[in-house]
């Protein structure tokens, strides 16, 4: 039958969105009998046409859809595969170039398979610039930032969600208001601040300002507000203090939100260019994005080497993504639905 019917069974089941875990199953049950029904109508319509009767409107629709479904499906796949190729080709091309001898790079029309292959581009790139160091720096900055940021957001989100105190709403709105201020607007004063603190060319300069994340506070507050009050009461009766309620109950129950935030933070900090560009001066402190940008400044046209360096910079984050993709995708979906 037509495409829409099969779709209902498949799509939701693949990705149990955190909000509608039961929806998928029940929809599937609903759909099966419907499909049978539609089929029945179709056969009946054939019989009616033989008998010289006008087929009922439903039959016409289902017939048309059947037609479109046959036409549509391959078209969909063709579009998707073409799109997917557009997504992958630049990566493959980069990888291919990274294995070429520098002189082979300049061939037109381009060749896909490096011949001869020169894997030495990788050790070369890694020795010319300390990419291992850059990666370690990025890892340190990103992980520290993510962990502290989630902690701070959870604490503030909990306070805003569950405590009553004077000026609570005013303070909360003030925090929200900072969400509207683009990071770039704050760059110069932040630079001056860091200079005043003596934090220029330190990791603190990258980590500390980034920890305080209004969106994170906002999202966690929204999530914490949905945790039933009785659960908190139960934990209190069981002897849990506020911090234990926060980290032993609220946080585990808001895991989808925590994961989403953590992933956003991770991606954002890992990929950030402007903060390292402004705050870091010595090469051994560079993060991998800044290191790569600087590297390209020096080896602008040595494409094989440059592509090798880019691959090196991309491999860790892509690996993290492939391992945790479920959370990445859930996180993004969540951020769209939650506002």
């Amino acid at each position: 039958m037509s495409s829409t019917e099969t779709s209902t069974g498949d799509t939701p089941a693949h990705e149990p969105s955190p909000h509608a875990p039961q929806g998928a199953g029940s929809q599937r049950h609903l759909v099966q009998p419907l499909r049978v029904a539609a089929d029945g109508v179709h056969h009946a319509s054939g019989a009616e046409r033989v008998a010289g009767m006008e087929p009922p409107p439903q039959a016409r629709v289902s017939h048309m859809q059947r037609h479109l479904g046959w036409m549509g499906k391959p078209l969909y796949y063709a579009t998707l595969i073409f799109g997917a190729a557009m997504m992958v080709v630049p990566f493959l091309w980069m990888f291919s170039t990274s294995l070429k001898v520098e002189s082979d790079v300049f061939q037109f029309p381009p060749e896909w398979l490096p011949d001869p292959a020169r894997p030495e581009n990788y050790p070369d790139a890694l020795t010319i610039a300390p990419f291992a160091r850059y990666l370690a720096n990025s890892a340190f900055v990103t992980i520290t930032d993510t962990v502290f940021s989630l902690t701070v957001c959870a604490m503030a989100g909990y306070a805003f969600a569950r405590f009553h105190f004077r000026f609570r709403n005013t303070i909360f709105i003030a925090v929200l208001a900072t969400m509207m201020v683009p990071v770039h607007v704050e760059l110069i004063p932040q630079f001056i601040l860091m200079r005043g603190l003596g934090w220029i060319d330190t990791f603190q300069a990258l980590i500390v300002p980034s920890i305080f994340w209004p969106f994170g506070i906002f999202l966690l507050r929204q999530f914490f507000m949905t945790v039933p009050k009785e659960l908190e009461d139960a934990a209190r009766m069981d002897g849990a203090g506020h911090l234990r309620i926060l980290f032993g109950l609220m946080v585990p129950l808001s895991l989808p939100a925590m994961a989403a935030l953590g992933i956003f933070k991770f991606m954002f900090t890992w990929n950030s260019l402007i903060a390292p560009l402004i705050f870091l001066t010595s090469r051994e402190k560079f993060t991998v994005t800044l290191g790569l940008a600087t590297f390209q400044g020096q080896y602008e046209t040595q494409w094989a080497l440059l592509m090798a360096a880019t691959v090196v910079a991309l491999v860790p984050i892509i690996t993290v993504f492939l391992i945790g993709q479920r959370y990445f995708i859930q996180g993004v979906a969540l951020s769209g639905l939650k506002r």
């Binding site: 880019t310 910079a313 892509i318 993504f321």
Partner: peptide, 10 residues
């Protein structure tokens, strides 16, 4: 989703 996780610099 691959490009989304790749840094803009890369």
């Amino acid at each position: 989703f691959l490009p989304v996780v790749s840094s803009m610099v890369a």
